[in-house]
Design a protein around this nucleic acid. Structure first.
Length: 247
DNA sequence: AATAAAGGCAACCGCCATTAC
DNA sequence: TGTAATGGCGGTTGCCTTTAT
């Protein structure tokens, strides 16, 4: 049984947004708020797919977005969270106010990946690449993360601290599996981080505050009676929740 | 100055989770 | 309880800009 398309593709625009379209979307959301993306295009007089409107708003038009280059501190937070969560861009974005998952994903793929590779670190496993240039080229200093990174807390968050231990030889990959299903055993085996700090200390502390109300930690999904997603229940990432429970 | 290659990023696509009915 | 509708996420694509030749 197939699904109906999310919008009438024959009558929708694609590609880059025009200033007029942006303004229509901004004006509409200012008045009516976010949500009801499916019906929004028609109501706002836009010949766009609802998903396209949502993406445009979240990734580009939202007033609280922080544009511009990533700071060194943001770099470190992204790398560290990626070592813990894998490609969970929305979760990572939730720790970086003003940044979107798409922006972080692009930044990772275009900058950080290369940076790690140049330091002989596998960007997927966060482990040194065997026979990498880092081990043979004296000019290349092995990449090391600082002892701790302060991750900005989210509104209404409940404090949680988190200890990351060095990966064992048997650890294979990131905790977050690509399938999205991670067992407790996966977490026990892989819930580690390779990085050591400069002092040789084996543990790295990372404040991974979790809380409700964050866009990225909430999976509203589904239909709501009034078409609003504001009443969505907090959604705890099962990986994060399970890992916190191990403490 | 012209062209090709590489980089950067916005946008799209398909799938999954959630929820109303 | 099953199905359809909807929102959200991650992967990928394609276009525009920048850099190298």
């Amino acid at each position: 049984m197939g699904r109906s398309p999310c919008c009438e593709k024959a009558h929708t625009n694609k590609g880059a947004w025009t200033k007029e379209e942006d303004q229509r979307l901004i004006d509409y959301i200012r008045i009516h708020g976010e949500g009801s993306w499916r019906s929004l295009p028609k109501s706002a007089g836009l010949l766009r797919c609802g998903k396209s409107c949502r993406l445009r708003w979240i990734n580009y038009l939202r007033p609280d977005l922080k544009r511009g280059n990533f700071s060194d501190e943001e770099d470190k937070v992204i790398i560290k969270l990626h070592s813990l969560l894998g490609n969970k861009w929305s979760l990572i974005a939730g720790r970086l106010p003003g940044r979107t998952d798409n922006e972080i994903k692009n930044y990772w793929n275009t900058h950080i990946k290369r940076k790690l590779l140049s330091h002989g670190i596998d960007p997927q496993t966060h482990r040194p690449i065997k026979d990498s240039i880092a081990e043979t080229d004296p000019k290349t200093v092995p990449y090391q993360l600082p002892t701790a990174v302060t991750v900005p807390p989210q509104n209404g968050a409940v404090e949680n601290s988190f200890t990351v231990r060095p990966k064992t030889e048997n650890s294979s990959d990131n905790v977050a599996s690509t399938s999205g299903t991670t067992t407790d055993e996966d977490i026990r085996q892989n819930g580690d981080c390779y990085y050591n700090d400069n002092s040789g200390e084996k543990e790295v502390n990372l404040d991974l505050t979790l809380g409700s109300g964050s866009t990225s930690l909430v999976r509203s999904g589904g239909r709501s009676g009034n078409g609003s997603s504001a009443d969505s229940k907090p959604w705890w990432d099962p990986v994060m929740a399970a890992r916190l429970s191990l403490l």
